[in-house]
Amino acid sequence: MFNSLTGIITGKFPKQVFIDTNGVEWDLCVPDSNLDMLPPVGNEAKIYTWLQHTDQLMALYGFASADERSVFLDLLKVDGVGPKGAVKIMSAVSSARLMDVLEKGDLEMLEKIPGVGKKTAGKLLLTLKGKLKLREEEGSVVRVAAASPYSDVVTSLVGMGYDKRLVEQKVAQLVEVLTNEADFAGKSQKEREDILFRRVIVELA
């Protein structure tokens, strides 16, 4: 029924965004991972939507891109994962990171995601492994995140107040340099993320 809303963002809160479209202010439930993808309050934005309509309630969910909404809809295919659960998962981990974990079959990592226990983690792998894909659309924020295994570093730095586009550029530059260093390549993913995180902060300072 609703594909998207375009208007001025009037409020951004944990898992919630207000957007005004010609005098009508909408209240949308939005994954925390999508908040940084949306412009600051007072700026125009396009938010892709999904409407939940039952006998008991009506709720509108919002996403920064069609890709993010597709990930949400894929999560709804998993038995036991409802809209609120899908938002909780997407708030705790980026779509690119979730796809990476699923492709690796990392059950232990899935179990660490808030709201995902051992049983749900198994269902996520069974239902979505090899099926969760992000389209590479021109200008898509998700495309940039999906192309890098360091999207969590970008998300953390943006959360600290750094400009997202500048962070992405700096991360890409440093990764290109660091991957040629044997010591960096021999580290675990977590260690590489920590090194990159510290280096980007120094560069931006």
Results as ranks from 00 to 15, higher is better:
Trp26His: 08
Asp27Leu: 13
Leu28Gln: 07
Leu28Ala: 05
Leu28Lys: 04
Cys29Ala: 15
Cys29Asp: 12
Val30Glu: 00
Pro31Gly: 13
Pro31Asn: 12
Pro31Met: 14
Asp32Asn: 12
Asp32Ala: 12
Leu35Phe: 02
Leu35Ile: 12
Asp36Trp: 06
Met37Pro: 10
Met37Tyr: 07
Leu38His: 03
Pro39Gln: 03
Pro39Ala: 06
Pro39Asp: 13
Val41Phe: 06
Val41Glu: 13
Gly42Glu: 11
Gly42Asn: 10
Gly42Met: 10
Gly42Leu: 08
Asn43Phe: 04
Asn43Val: 05
Asn43Arg: 14
Glu44Asn: 14
Lys46Thr: 13
Ile47Cys: 06
Ile47Gly: 01
Ile47Tyr: 00
Ile47Gln: 05
Ile47Thr: 01
Tyr48Gln: 06
Thr49Leu: 10
Thr49Val: 15
Trp50Lys: 03
Trp50Cys: 09
Leu51Ile: 12
Gln52Pro: 07
His53Asn: 15
His53Arg: 09
His53Ala: 05
Thr54Asp: 04
Thr54Gln: 11
Thr54Asn: 11
Asp55Asn: 05
Asp55Ile: 02
Gln56Phe: 15
Gln56Leu: 13
Leu57Val: 11
Leu57Asn: 11
Leu57Lys: 13
Leu57Gln: 13
Met58Thr: 12
Ala59Gly: 07
Leu60His: 07
Leu60Phe: 03
Tyr61Leu: 01
Tyr61Lys: 00
Gly62His: 00
Gly62Met: 03
Phe63Thr: 08
Phe63Glu: 02
Ala64Asn: 09
Ala64Thr: 01
Ser65Arg: 07
Ser65Asn: 11
Ala66Ser: 12
Ala66Tyr: 14
Ala66Asp: 12
Asp67Tyr: 08
Glu68Pro: 02
Arg69Glu: 15
Arg69Asp: 02
Ser70Leu: 07
Ser70Gly: 07
Val71Met: 12
Phe72Cys: 07
Leu73Trp: 03
Leu73Ser: 09
Asp74Leu: 08
Asp74His: 15
Asp74Tyr: 10
Asp74Trp: 09
Asp74Lys: 12
Leu75Gly: 04
Leu76Ala: 09
Leu76Met: 12
Leu76Pro: 05
Lys77Cys: 05
Val78Pro: 03
Asp79Lys: 05
Asp79Asn: 10
Asp79Ser: 08
Val81Gln: 02
Val81Lys: 05
Gly82Ile: 04
Pro83Ser: 09
Lys84Glu: 11
Lys84Leu: 08
Gly85Trp: 00
Ala86Arg: 01
Ala86Ile: 09
Lys88Trp: 14
Ile89Glu: 00
Ile89Lys: 02
Met90Val: 14
Met90Glu: 04
Met90Cys: 08
Ser91Val: 00
Ser91Asp: 00
Ser91Phe: 00
Val93Ala: 14
Ser94Ala: 11
Ser94Asn: 14
Ser95His: 11
Ser95Arg: 05
Ala96Glu: 05
Ala96Thr: 09
Ala96Cys: 12
Ala96Val: 07
Ala96Gln: 07
Arg97Lys: 15
Leu98Ala: 12
Leu98Arg: 00
Asp100Cys: 07
Val101Thr: 13
Val101Arg: 05
Leu102Glu: 03
Glu103Phe: 09
Glu103Ile: 11
Lys104Pro: 02
Gly105Pro: 03
Gly105Met: 07
Asp106Glu: 07
Leu107Pro: 06
Leu107Ala: 13
Glu108Gln: 13
Glu108Leu: 03
Glu108Cys: 06
Glu108Pro: 02
Met109Leu: 02
Leu110His: 01
